[in-house]
Design a binder for these strands. Structure first.
Lengths: 141, 141
DNA sequence: CTGTTATTTGTACTTATTTCATTTTTTAAT
DNA sequence: ATTAAAAAATGAAATAAGTACAAATAACAG
């Protein structure tokens, strides 16, 4: 709780009840939730919370680089408290969205060193994979 | 026109006027258009064309792997007739979406060989960059 | 031709997200 | 404390992308 508040402050975001609750939720659940999931999870303990506030707050967090957006084909916007560069794997069977660490510089650096990107000013890199996750693969046949 | 038709056939898609027109448009314009852009471009010459047909047709093309979807944060779905693996660069200044070739296997293979992905069955890989494109960078200061 | 199937069309609907005016909460100053 | 001012939250209404569906049209086989 205190950590959450400190984190928000460090990102230049003024703390409020709802902001802390939302950020806290994202820090505890690495499931890349949608707006609706966050709203439904918090609503029982914060009955006055409105969806609009969830939308506004998430947008604010993204603007202050406190969280990341995860955009997957055909899916609603999802959010991720981990702003370090990492890829996502989207399982088409179970729907899970799994974080994939990128071994710093080796994988990513290689990509960005692509000669075709020489004159580009890269601010963000998004990488995502789609397929079948290990646990679905095992329980398959 | 004939090429377009042959291409559709090779993908197992039955040709119709509207399907040819839409695929043709995508093959001639590498701008990664949205549904609306395609509709507005074709409508003058095909006044009876409906948006629904554009939606249906694009979905059909994607299912038959004749085109690719391009999903960018905060953008509507966009479409790309080039189904070869390549990345996209999204310029935040001019809005252009530029194809970035990946030097086969070296860049991409490196990524997918990531130890964290060992037990995943990868069906698709999406890579996109966000930042400022060379021409905007030049005309900047 | 004629009946059958595939495709297209347009309207109505759903649903995610945004807008905005009002209310509530927070902050700072008296 | 009290109050004025600013910031944030709320909820209802608007917007817009995309989908469902039934009717109309076109393509096709016999």
């Amino acid at each position: 709780m205190k950590d959450t508040q400190e984190y928000l402050t460090s990102k230049g975001i003024h703390s409020t009840q709802q902001r802390i609750a939302i950020m806290n939720y994202l820090m505890k659940h690495h499931t890349h939730p949608t707006v609706e999931e966050i709203f439904l999870a918090l609503n029982p303990k914060m009955p006055t919370l409105s969806r609009t506030t969830v939308y506004n707050t998430l947008k604010l967090f993204v603007q202050h680089d406190a969280i990341q957006t995860v955009n997957l084909e055909g899916e609603n916007a999802r959010f991720d408290a981990d702003t370090d560069m990492h890829a996502h794997f989207h399982c088409v069977r179970c729907g899970a969205i799994i974080d994939i660490p990128l071994t710093c510089l080796s994988d990513l650096g290689n990509l960005q060193a692509n000669p075709a990107l020489q004159n580009y000013d890269i601010k963000q890199t998004h990488i995502d994979f789609k397929g079948i996750c290990p646990s679905c693969k095992t329980s398959e046949k």
